[in-house]
Amino acid sequence: MAKSLKLEETLALLDRIDLDLAPEEAIAHLKQAIGSKHAIAAARAAKLASKANLHGLIPDLATAFERFMLNAAATDPNCIAKKQIAEALYRLEYSQEDLFLNGIGHVQMESVWGGKVDTAPGLRGICALGLVRMNYSEVMVELADLLADPEPEARIGSARAIAYAENPQGVPLLRLKVKVGDKDPQVLSECFMGLLQLAPTQSLDLIAEFLDRPEAQVCEMAALALGESRLPAAFPILRDWWRRTRNAELRQSALLAIAMLRQDEALAFLLALVAEGKLAEAKEAAIALDLYRQDRHVWQRICEAIEQRGDDKIQF
């Protein structure tokens, strides 16, 4: 591939790469694209290298990352290349801590209409995962700092990395974040799920407290996290919350979370609502049970519950 190729030509060439038909030629093209000054081309090539599990391109990816860190806003607007390269190195199990440490601390302010914006929070989150995967000795310190990052995307990345680490030291960090709160409900959601993964029994009551918060979105996030946990002990918590909740949207979220548990007791509760509950409750339960559409056995039971009710107003 000639060095004089323009960006459009480089991207077109990457689109035509077939590692099965001409592996050596394809790798040569990827190597040159990774070394290109064009951030978009380098990002595309990094993604292909990761997908094909090309460990031989790790040195080229690491070199490109450091190159795009220089005069970063000009050479790599929106952190496109650095983010994709860091993700590729993470997936390829790169084990040099300095690169990920540089990335987790990188802030890239770029001009936008009305001011400046940091375009690197996603990069910081990916580098957090990289440090966890390589078992970096001080990773929990880095994750604690990232959990207090000004950008919600970075805080979400930290919460995910803490859960990924499967380290008991992460539990106090997530509990503190939940107790202190966050302006972004999605951050709390990631903390809820992390706690239910790392310390399910001791976290149930804490997360249950958020079901009755004034902010409806926070209540919903707590409910869905409990549902996703599939913990049997979450069922009575969600059932009782549904019974005392008057907000129609939250009641639907409660039933969906109960369905997500995929527990026999929870399923029996929803089927009973369909067969014997008030019409509005039966309709809401049927909507939640749509989650089981691909499960032939459960779907048959749902259809039987509707037939038992004998009401054509309940339909899927």
Rank of each mutant, 00 (worst) to 15 (best):
M1V: 12
A2W: 08
A2I: 08
K3M: 07
S4Q: 10
L7W: 04
L7T: 06
E8P: 00
E8K: 13
L11A: 01
A12M: 10
L13S: 07
D20I: 14
E24S: 13
A28F: 11
K31D: 13
I34L: 15
H38N: 13
S50F: 00
A52W: 14
N53T: 06
G56A: 08
I58L: 08
T63P: 01
T63I: 10
A64L: 01
A64V: 03
R67M: 09
L70K: 15
N71G: 12
N71I: 09
T75Y: 07
D76N: 08
Q84D: 11
A88M: 06
A88N: 02
L89A: 05
E93N: 15
E93H: 15
Q96I: 14
D98T: 15
D98F: 06
F100G: 07
I104Y: 04
Q108H: 03
E110T: 01
V112R: 10
W113P: 00
V117M: 12
D118I: 07
A120C: 02
G130H: 04
M134V: 08
Y136F: 15
E138T: 13
V141L: 14
E142F: 07
A144I: 04
A144E: 15
D145M: 11
P150H: 06
P150N: 00
R155W: 00
G157W: 04
Y164W: 11
A165I: 03
N167S: 10
G170R: 01
V171Y: 04
P172Y: 05
P172R: 04
V178A: 10
G181I: 07
G181P: 08
K183G: 14
P185F: 05
Q186R: 14
E190M: 07
E190I: 01
E190Q: 13
C191A: 15
F192G: 03
F192N: 02
F192S: 02
G194C: 04
L198F: 09
L198Q: 03
S203T: 05
L206C: 06
L211W: 05
L211T: 07
R213C: 05
P214H: 01
E215T: 10
V218S: 04
E220Q: 14
E228R: 14
S229G: 02
S229I: 03
S229D: 03
R230Y: 04
L231Q: 11
R239Y: 01
R243Y: 02
T245R: 06
R246W: 05
R246A: 09
N247Q: 12
A248M: 09
A248I: 10
Q252M: 06
I258N: 11
A259Q: 06
L261N: 01
L261Y: 05
L261V: 05
Q263M: 06
E265W: 00
L271Y: 06
A272G: 12
A272W: 09
L273T: 00
E276Q: 13
G277R: 03
A280R: 14
A282F: 01
E284I: 03
I287V: 13
L289F: 05
D290H: 10
L291V: 02
W299G: 08
Q300C: 00
R301C: 04
E304C: 03
Q308T: 12
Q308K: 15
G310W: 06
D312N: 13
D312M: 07
K313A: 13
Q315L: 12
